[in-house]
Design a protein around this nucleic acid. Structure first.
Lengths: 159, 159
DNA sequence: TATTGTTATACTCTATAACTATA
DNA sequence: TATAGTTATAGAGTATAACAATA
């Protein structure tokens, strides 16, 4: 995502000649479409969040910590399907910006409980609005039934 | 992807307690599911391609160059929706491994035509088999109608 | 002037391995 | 022994900006 400049995407639109050619076999590969769709959403997210300077993953972390204050990094790892090292790094970044804090848990002093700091709560409120904008852009091409269908299908991939 | 070790994913399976809790609001965010699904597919792809040491993107490039020998880097950029700099880097990596070569086009000497080298053709043949394995893992959870539906929906995202 | 491609730079994500500390 | 988290390291992807060559 690369803390996200407020610019037009550098990816030029596909000329008609290219589009007509198609991509042959590759168009039958589900994983290929998933990757392209993810990339398109990733780029739009980056544009939408250029002012807030937050990535998809960072927003997800703030969001979850807000909804379950005190959750451990390990639980967070599971929810967002990333390993411990990645989680540490992302939490580091948010903590360095004063958006959340770590506190050792009373019951099990190996674990770190995560809580939003006031700045994190404020940023998250703005992020939720930006997510709505972004999601509107994304969902506007579908009926609500199609959105439900798509989410259900994607859930069967990520479990 | 990180040239991909032949190991179990470091992402532990979610304990039942976490799963039961769910993710609240976040579960209504389409982009969130897209990101998780992409991540899951990305990881399985990495496992499947650990021996071949190829990423999704690298396979896509070999695949397209094979299907349209002589295509330019710019056309490749459009097909895979990435900018010129990223394209240069990925082509560099494949060229360094002797899988493809660049040649200036006769008609327009600004452009570079891409062609597979024999090693590239051999690697791609093995990659196509691995893609079949990977796609079977991915598609086995869906009916063929659902696969078609999912591809159609994803296409409306990436255009 | 516009397009094609390269290079330098930089940041995020991802992951492994080795480590500390706690249980 | 097993779990929680950190640190060091590394590679891939993404993107911007400045640049050279060609059109």
């Amino acid at each position: 995502m690369g803390i996200t400049r407020n610019k037009q995407s550098a990816i030029a639109s596909t000329p008609a000649t290219d589009a007509r050619a198609g991509r042959g076999d590759l168009d039958a590969v589900l994983g290929f479409h998933l990757r392209l769709a993810h990339g398109a959403v990733y780029r739009h997210f980056a544009e939408t969040f250029s002012e807030l300077e937050l990535t998809q993953k960072q927003v997800s972390v703030l969001w979850l910590v807000s909804d379950w204050p005190g959750l451990s990094q390990t639980t967070l790892s599971h929810q967002l399907q990333m390993d411990r090292a990645t989680t540490t790094e992302i939490v580091n970044r948010l903590a360095a910006r004063g958006l959340l804090r770590r506190a050792t848990m009373a019951g099990d002093r190996r674990k770190l409980a995560l809580h939003l700091l006031p700045a994190g709560t404020r940023v998250l409120a703005r992020a939720r609005k930006a997510v709505r904008t972004h999601e509107t852009w994304l969902k506007d091409r579908f009926s609500s039934a199609e959105v439900e269908m798509l989410i259900a299908l994607l859930e069967r991939i990520h479990g």
